[in-house]
Design a protein around this nucleic acid. Structure first.
Length: 774
DNA sequence: CACGTCACTGTTTTT
DNA sequence: CAGTGACGTG
């Protein structure tokens, strides 16, 4: 049987059409990945060479998975020759090859977003600007948008972006941008946006390279096209200019990256750019139940700008979408954890069938806690990834600095770690001189005695010692038998990092030490894997230098999925859930101000993007979707009231089931912070919120919203029979403790409890709100 | 210069 | 509630 038989008609047509540009509008769950994979196999079967195919994915993980699948069909060797990866990784590869045609040296390093922010921060400080008027994050993202819209520093002052800045009295933004560009260049460093922008500049300055690559890439595929930005769009256009075989796949309803410069217009206007383009629509959703698909469609229909498509499901109708209300965010976690366990028992499912989605990373913590209490195994995607940990970045900074001495951010990061007596005052002085002279920090320090005689001999000595050490690393790393692992190990021990971390006997310190070990092991594994590849393909080079390692690691997000198929509940943001699917999805924190986010409700465009995000979230679920919101959420250490999101209301009530309860973790009367405040109905609260949010709130509520099924007045009293002397318990305020004795009986029952931190207390049973502790 | 204490302030989303 | 920065003391 041919693989083509595994496709439905439009999928098959999209795969088979290889004569010209094509746009595939692929609704959620419509088999987009399958089309892309089969398409590539089809191309190869029809005479395209793997190295002539450029396939751009949205994440490295997606590229890896697709490559694996293709490798099964056409063999690993061929698959390895495909140009497949994210825009960033593909362009990095091109930039490294063509580096002599750029303004950078070949050992350039990559500034991640934290590095970029630090640079901006330093500039604002050095320019003596008020950091309230110039918030680092905002300015950094201004610069990023400028780059993504192809506005170079010298053109910024004439741009609309700058006009906005001036309106908010930030007239120096153009100067900051200029200085930023200068500093990065000085440091021989590119930030993430540069990987795109510099590629664009490379191609505009060198038409012969456009020719070279547009000839090379005989077929170009771009996934998630709705999330491409201007630079990416322009480069794809240039690369496709010769053969016109540009095959883009996307879904305008799932465009959720405008904050990163994504232009939904790129997909909306594809037909305008490629007049002869064929359009294929994948409308059948194979993933979700009809209920889920219909509900998602109903929500997205509220958006004005979109391509016409009609997604449908022929799967079972499925259960209604459940809506769970909780009294507070900790109860939300409590209820969902309980629900997961109940569902697993009832339906015989695995942990890995479940995912908890949220709008912001900050929400993960409390959910984690609830899962941990119930001993539910989980894994978190994204968030603080391995490569963002302090100790990992520290060691990587050593490696970066030995490869590129001008990497100022790396220099500043480790010059005094471990402590060498080189403090902030010294470094401030040096940075200032470096800026004045237009030198990198390394080059400034190299002649510091001439440039600033005022620095004490002791400090100069410490600086010299540091530089000598780094220089030695550099020399050693260039010895022919030195691989990435050897030099990394040497850095870790000679620098004193290992000893420093080893000496820290705190739990965190030990885990930092282990993380460094893990990183070193990872580097070792990388070196070995490359060696193996080199043996398999003697004609290809697989260098194992530290520079090569850094190149690879700098774009890693840390989702190295070793425990990929472990049986765990997934916790992730909706953004990182894009492209994934789970049998049972819990969409958490669906509250006004959080989802849609407070910032987004200011403009229709932003609100529409939030709605698309909601659409993405809903369509992740295969069988069962549960939407959860809470009435009270901790925000900045303070309990603040919350109202259910408008998005819930946008789903027709016939798809919703409000009758989902669950045993509350609170006693009705036990905690005055909660008592009384939640007895309002859903609808009443919404009315109260009407004034501060949006017009749609004035709409009459659908029938199902009149009442909430869970009444806080009727909670079952805690079953006290479990509590006797010697039992370990947990109290919401006093934490863990042990019951010493039980006095009286009935309503007057009292416990005497020794709490681990709060000491001995006597509590009235009916107010104690105790839980058994394990 | 290192280390401790205290006040402040901020939460979208990511390659 | 954190994580960060400012400030003051060995």
């Amino acid at each position: 049987m041919s693989y083509l038989d595994e496709l439905n008609l439009p999928q098959r047509e999209a795969v088979e059409y290889i004569d010209g540009p094509a746009l595939v509008i692929a609704g959620a769950g419509s088999g987009k990945t399958r089309v892309l994979t089969y398409k590539i196999m089809h191309l190869i079967e029809n005479g395209f060479q793997p190295w002539n195919i450029l396939a751009i994915t949205f994440t490295n993980k997606a590229a890896r998975e697709m490559k694996e699948r293709i490798a099964q069909k056409i063999g690993e060797q061929k698959a390895a020759q495909l140009w497949m990866g994210t825009f960033h990784s593909i362009f990095l590869r091109i930039l490294k090859v063509e580096v002599e045609n750029t303004d950078y040296q070949k050992n350039f390093t990559i500034y991640d977003q934290a590095d970029a922010r630090n640079v901006v921060k330093g500039i604002i400080k050095e320019m003596k600007l008020d950091d309230k008027t110039y918030p680092v994050n905002d300015i950094a993202s201004r610069i990023s948008s400028a780059k993504n819209s192809l506005i170079p520093p010298n053109a910024y002052a004439a741009s609309e972006l700058y006009a906005d800045d001036c309106n908010s009295r930030r007239n120096y933004t153009d100067k900051i941008y200029m200085q930023y560009a200068r500093k990065c260049h000085q440091a021989n460093a590119m930030d993430f946006d540069d990987l795109l922008l510099q590629t664009y500049i490379l191609f505009s300055k060198h038409p012969e390279l456009v020719k070279k690559y547009s000839d090379k890439f005989k077929y170009i595929l771009v996934d998630e096209y709705q999330d491409t930005n201007s630079v990416q769009y322009m480069i794809v256009k240039a690369l496709g200019s010769l053969h016109h075989k540009v095959f883009v796949v996307g879904d305008d309803a799932q465009s959720i990256y405008s904050f990163r410069g994504a232009q939904i217009e790129n997909i909306l206007n594809f037909k305008r750019d490629y007049k002869e383009a064929k359009i294929f629509k994948l409308e059948q959703n194979y993933r979700s139940t009809q209920t889920i698909v219909n509900a998602a469609n109903a929500v997205i229909a509220k958006n004005t700008r979109q391509l016409k498509k009609d997604t449908f499901s022929e799967n079972e109708c499925g259960n209604k979408i459940r809506v769970i209300e909780s009294a507070a965010d900790n109860e939300e976690g409590f209820l969902l954890a309980a629900d997961i366990l109940k569902t697993i028992n009832r339906d015989g499912l695995n942990y890995s069938d479940f995912a908890l989605l949220y709008r912001t990373n900050a929400q993960s913590r409390i959910l984690e806690e609830s899962l941990r209490k119930r001993s539910i195994p989980y894994k978190i995607y994204g968030g603080m990834s391995f490569y963002q940990r302090k100790e990992i970045k520290d060691l990587i900074a050593y490696l970066r600095l030995l490869v590129n001495g001008n990497d100022d951010e790396a220099f500043k990061r480790i010059v005094n770690y471990p402590k060498r007596g080189i403090g902030d005052t010294t470094m401030d002085k040096i940075s200032q001189i470096a800026t004045q002279r237009g030198l990198s920090i390394w080059n400034t320090v190299a002649q510091i005695t001439q440039l600033d005689p005022s620095i004490s001999a002791r400090t100069v000595n410490a600086l010299a010692g540091f530089m000598k050490m780094i220089y030695q690393f550099k020399v050693d790393s260039q010895k022919p038998d030195c691989d990435a692992y050897k030099i990394a190990m040497q850095c870790a021990s000679t620098s004193g990092m290992l000893a420093d971390l080893f000496a820290d006997k705190s739990v965190e310190g030990q885990s930092r030490y282990e993380n460094i070990q893990e990183l070193l092991n990872g580097i070792k594994a990388w070196v070995e894997a490359r060696g193996k590849l080199a043996k398999q393909n003697p004609e290809t080079e697989y260098p194992v230098t530290i520079a090569d390692y850094l190149e690879e690691v700098s774009l890693m997000t840390g989702d190295e999925g070793e425990d990929e198929d472990m049986n765990k509940v997934s916790l992730l943001t909706i953004h990182s859930a894009k492209g994934l699917e789970f049998r049972n999805v819990y969409l958490t924190g669906v509250e006004e101000g959080l989802f849609p986010s407070a910032k987004s409700v200011m403009s229709i465009t932003d609100l529409e993007e939030e709605r698309r995000l909601f659409y993405v979230a809903v369509t992740r679920a295969e069988k069962c979707l549960t939407i959860s919101y809470t009435r009270m959420r901790y925000k900045w250490g303070q309990l603040t009231p919350a109202t259910p999101s408008r998005f819930i209301r946008e789903i027709d009530t016939r798809y919703l089931d409000f009758g989902v309860g669950g045993e509350s973790m609170f006693e009705a009367s036990s905690d005055t912070a909660y008592a009384g405040r939640f007895r309002k109905t859903f609808y009443q609260n919404d009315q109260a919120a009407k004034g501060v949010t949006e017009k749609s709130f004035a709409d009459a509520p659908p029938a199902g919203f009149k009442k909430i099924p869970r009444s806080f007045a009727t909670f079952k009293k805690a079953d006290t029979s479990d509590f006797a002397a010697g039992v370990l318990v947990e109290h919401p305020k006093f934490g863990r403790g042990k019951i010493v004795s039980v006095e009286n009986s009935g309503a007057d029952t009292q416990y005497v409890i020794d709490f681990m931190s709060a000491g001995r207390k006597k509590l009235l049973a009916k107010f104690a709100n105790l839980k058994k502790s394990e």
